[in-house]
Computed example of a mutant assay.
Amino acid sequence: MKKIINLLIGTNNKGKLREIRALLPKNIKSFSVSSFKLKSPIENGKTFEENSLIKAKYFSKKTKLLCLADDSGLEIDILNKAPGIYSARWGGKNSDFSKAIKKVYRELDKKDKNWKNKKIKARFICALSICFFDKKIACVKGKVEGTISLKPLGKNGFGYDPIFIPRGKKVTFGEMPFLKKFKIDHRYQAFKKIRKFL
């Protein structure tokens, strides 16, 4: 495969865009879908991988560029792995994550009044796909295990970062400096696997 020079990053999420750009090799010129004024496609896949492929193919066809797309979310074991692929949708129409985080705590209270005395196991999952038009070039998955914090902590990161404590750490992703978080998180784990395609 010839070297990739131009790559579209298939996300309208500024946090994801920043993180993916920071992980990309320096020789790749990256474009964002916002510069093409593209809305995201309907994600009707049943898995993170399916949804990341839907996005990568859709944005590639619209722009005629090779596209790298991410689908990621939080799985909480006690909630039967919810919110999972519906992570952004828990925030309502505008993906308001303060709403989504409140919903996580509401669901935990419903499930187990004593959840705060237990370690609530959770993981962040990220699927990354590269497509050119309808052709799948790569699709990989990365994850990071951890637990849910008793309350949101930290203003860094985005999404559910303020309530996720990665295994072996004492602080949430929301409390970690960007450079520290993006070297251990689920997107980085997926990126290690997809790097050989770049």
Rank of each mutant, 00 (worst) to 15 (best):
N114A: 13
D71W: 00
S40D: 05
F191T: 04
L17C: 10
H186R: 05
F173I: 11
R167S: 15
N44H: 11
G91S: 12
Y160E: 06
D96M: 08
K81A: 13
V144G: 03
K16I: 09
C67V: 07
K193R: 03
N117D: 15
G159S: 07
K111L: 08
K16G: 08
L68Q: 05
K183F: 07
R21P: 02
T147A: 08
I78L: 05
M1H: 14
L7Q: 04
T63Y: 10
I85R: 00
S149A: 15
D96Q: 13
F132C: 09
F36V: 07
Y58E: 02
I184G: 02
K29P: 06
K29R: 12
D70L: 01
S32W: 05
N6I: 08
E75R: 03
K111R: 15
T147P: 03
K29H: 14
M1F: 14
Y105H: 08
D134F: 09
G159T: 13
I148N: 02
K119T: 15
I4E: 01
I165V: 14
G142P: 01
R21S: 14
N114E: 14
A69F: 00
F178W: 12
K113T: 13
S98K: 15
Y58M: 00
F48Q: 01
R18V: 14
K170H: 10
C126W: 03
I163S: 01
K135L: 04
L8Q: 04
I28Q: 00
A56P: 00
P152D: 11
P25Q: 01
S60I: 10
K110L: 13
G146R: 00
N156Q: 10
W90L: 03
K111M: 11
F48G: 00
L38N: 02
K141C: 09
L128M: 05
G73K: 06
D134A: 10
